[in-house]
Structures are given as C-alpha cells and as structure tokens.
Design a protein around this nucleic acid. Structure first.
Lengths: 245, 245
DNA sequence: CGCTTCCTTGAGTGACATCAAGCGTGGTGG
DNA sequence: CCACCACGCTTGATGTCACTCAAGGAAGCG
C-alpha cells in the first residue's frame, strides 16, 4: 500500500509515505515547505486508551492522525459522557485558533500522531492560504458528519443506531481496502471495531447493555457475524444499510 | 443600536449598518472590496416558514443572515426529522465549496438574507485569504456548537433538553441586548421563541407532547413564565442553567 | 488457578412515545 | 356579530423501548 513518488528526493523522509501528504493538509505544501514544516513536527506513538488531549487544557499543539483511531468526547459534570467524533488517518486533530480545548481526545486504538506546536502551525497557516483551505475543507467535512450524526442521535432507534455505527466504521476504518472492494463488487467486509462496547454506547447515546443486545439481534438476523468481541464480519453491506433507517 | 463609522462614505449603503460587516465575514473586507462584493449581492426578505434551501438541490448561491432565525434540518426517508442547527445574524448560510445541499434551510422567523452567487463568493474567497479565514472561524464555531448539541441529544433527559434549548435561545436571539443586560447584572430575560413546539421537538429529538409537558413543568416550578405560545420570560437565568444538566 | 475486565443475558422499571380528547386563538363567512 | 373551523398547543391514559439492576460467562493476565 506504499505510494511512491518519482521525484521525492527533497521530501522529508517521514513525509514520503505519509497519508497526510496525499489526502490531508500537507498536500497543500510543496517540498520546500514540507521541509520547513518538518523542522517543527514530531511523530509520537500512543497505545490504546492514552489521553491525547485533556478537556479544558490549554492548546499547545496540533497533530495529524497518521495511524489508528482517535475518539473525541465531552462529559457533563455528573459523569455522563458523549463521544462527539472519531478521527481516522489522515484527519487533523485540534481546535484551530482556539485557546482551550473543549473536549477530550483519547486513542481508541494504537495511534501515531504527527504533532506540531500551535504557534508553528498558525504561522504556517498565515503564510500559506492553501493550507488553511485544506483545513477548511476538512472542518466542513467534520461539520457535515457531526450533523449527520445528530440525526442518528436524535431520531433513530437503538437498533438503527448500532447499524449506523457499524456502517460508519466499515466505511472509514480502511478507506483504501474499502474502495478496492467496491471496485471488485464485493459486498462482504471484515473489520476490527476500534471501540469497546462502553465507547460505542457513549457514541450512540445508549447503554452498554442495549448495544450488546442490538449486536446480538443483528447477529441472529444474519446481518453480521461476531468473530470475537472486537472483530465483526458483514456479509452484505447492503443488508446493513437497510437497517440504518 | 445603529453603529456609525466616521469614514464610510465609500462603503456601499446597504453595508453601512449591517451586522455582517461588523461581526461576520464582511469584516474581512475593506471599502474597496466591499464595493466589489456589493456588485453581486442582493438582499432578499422571506416570511416565516419559507424554504431557503431545499435538500439535495444544487448549490447556486450563499448568503449571510442579516435578520431573523434560520432553521437547518435533515430528514430520514420515512419522514423523521432532525433540526441540526439554528443560524442567527450575522451567520453565513450555505455549504462552502459543496455541489449539492445536504440539508434543508427554512426561515424560522421573518428573515432577511444578503445573497451572493456561488461563483462570485468563491472567486472572492480565493482572492482574499482573510475572507476564508473569517469563514473558517465561523465554521469552527458551528462545529463546536454541533458537538455541544450532540451531548444534549445523546445524554440529556427531556427536561434538561428543554432547559438547554431555552438557554440557547436566550443567549443567541439578541446578543447585543443580552450583553447589556449582563453588564447591568440583570438576570431576568424575556424573548420570543423562534420555533414552534414541533420545531423544538425536532431540534431536541423529542415529541411535541413531551416538549409541552416539560415547558409546563418548568413553568410550575417557577423557572419560566409563559406569556403566550411564543413568548417566554426567564426571571433568573441562573436557575435555568442549573436545569441544563 | 483465581482475579479482573469486558461482555452477554434476564427480569423489572421508568421515561418518553403514542393515541386520543379537549382548549384557546385567530380567521372566514354567513 | 357570532357560528364555524383550522391550527397549534396542552393534558390525560396507555403502551413500549431502552434503562437499571443483577447475575453469570468468556477471555486475558498475574
């Protein structure tokens, strides 16, 4: 799955095979500016469960997700939690131009980030409008997704919510493999759930028990197969879509 | 409440007292570019209930909300509806850089828009990065609000949802009067609900009946007074906030 | 082997939906 | 002017879906 450029001798080594450069914000930069950028960036690995951003903390850096899944969530004072977004590679992480974080970010799976100090990125953004444009496009996509999810949260039944979640993961977890599969007309799919039942419940505005029951129901109805707690097979994506309401 | 500039002889007449120029996207433009912009813009009035944007329609123009409240909503095939956002002056209306609309926009109250053709604005955005920056700031604010609302939809009870909605309206309907009131230490507020019970229900993911019952409950508990179906008084915003969960 | 963590399953409850009147206001026409 | 209806809202009775509480199974780990 590595992508090779013919002329990339001046591209920083780390950037050469990076998805962010091909689909994410770094695609706005040429070799010269990539080099400039790479003087400030730092790639960091986190294990699943690690806190990447603490709620109410001061924003000191931004990041690009290079690998893994990041869970964004908000909490009410009494502990009720709502997952408000999932970030996949090559998504951008952080509230651009903000001072304080208004949500918590946690590694849902093992994660690799390409971090950059707040001030460095903001200077770069000022200097390269094309970079801000890329980030704008991503922000707009996130807004679209958030609104789509509001429909799921507000108006769908528990069973539709779970089906919608599975479809979301199926279509986001591995975009490349996914496209290839569609080209070949394959409708079957197998994937790892990046979230625990508790996280799924917090994403869907349900309880663990309800999520579990609905998954069992989908299994009994032959819509999915549950290999183990984290692995799911969908024999026919079409049959899953029908269940999304 | 009119704001006067000392030197605005070259500012297009329509722009002179416009909130958009002071707080919204047009603040990014100087007199010269405002003049350029105003060659393409057109202000249009709509009455409450008018459809401003149809779902799945092609995007041909953008707009700024100059007066009134706009309701953004999405529908499932079977007719279930979810309101996914409310736009107040001087908000921007339209999915920048999109081709198709993915939601419906309706005038919740009498509305005045300042419309501009899609291509004209996009050219202007390309030429003036500062304009895109303003729109970026607004998009990020909308994303923050959408995520805040996801918590309400997913994790709050019916009564907390209604209280949260009232607080949202109280703090957005008339920002200027609102600030003045806070300065004076007044905690009481009276305002018009821009939405019908049905719209409120669609915003909160509830039914009309539940919204009505919760409003009655807030009234009986002395948190609000219901002047008539559309007018509400909140004697103490603090007491309302406590109810938001 | 026992412990912990995560998940499933069951029984009972409760919050909100549904179904069904009834009320108030504003508009229309006789 | 009032009868009539339409519309939006409220209120009550009943139903149901998802939550709560409780127990037990499966997998990972010391």
């Amino acid at each position: 799955m590595s992508r090779n450029d013919i002329h990339n001798s001046d591209v920083p080594i780390l950037c050469r095979s990076c998805e962010v450069r091909h689909q994410g914000m770094c695609g706005a930069l040429d070799q010269h500016h990539l080099l400039e950028l790479s003087r400030y960036t730092q790639t960091v690995r986190y294990e699943a469960g690690a806190e990447l951003i603490a709620d109410d903390s001061e924003i000191t850096s931004y990041a690009n997700v290079m690998r893994g899944v990041v869970k964004l969530s908000k909490m009410l004072e009494d502990g009720r939690q709502q997952v408000v977004g999932l970030q996949f590679a090559p998504d951008f992480l952080g509230r651009l131009f903000g001072r304080q974080n208004t949500l918590e970010a946690e590694a849902a799976s093992p994660v690799e980030l390409c971090k950059i100090p707040k001030s460095a990125l903001e200077k770069l953004v000022k200097a390269h409008p094309e970079l801000e444009h890329r980030l704008m496009e991503q922000t707009l996509r996130e807004l679209d997704e958030a609104r789509e999810w509001m429909v799921t949260l507000g108006r769908k039944t528990a069973s539709e919510k779970v089906a919608t979640f599975l479809l979301l993961i199926a279509t986001h977890i591995d975009p490349v493999a996914n496209e290839r599969q569609e080209e070949r007309g394959e409708r079957s799919m197998k994937f790892d759930l990046p979230l625990s039942r508790a996280d799924i419940a917090d994403f869907l505005g349900l309880t663990i028990e309800t999520v579990s029951r609905q998954l069992t129901k989908l299994r009994k109805d032959g819509v999915i197969e549950i290999v183990n707690n984290r692995q799911v097979t969908v024999p026919d994506l079409g049959r899953l879509k029908v269940r999304c309401g």
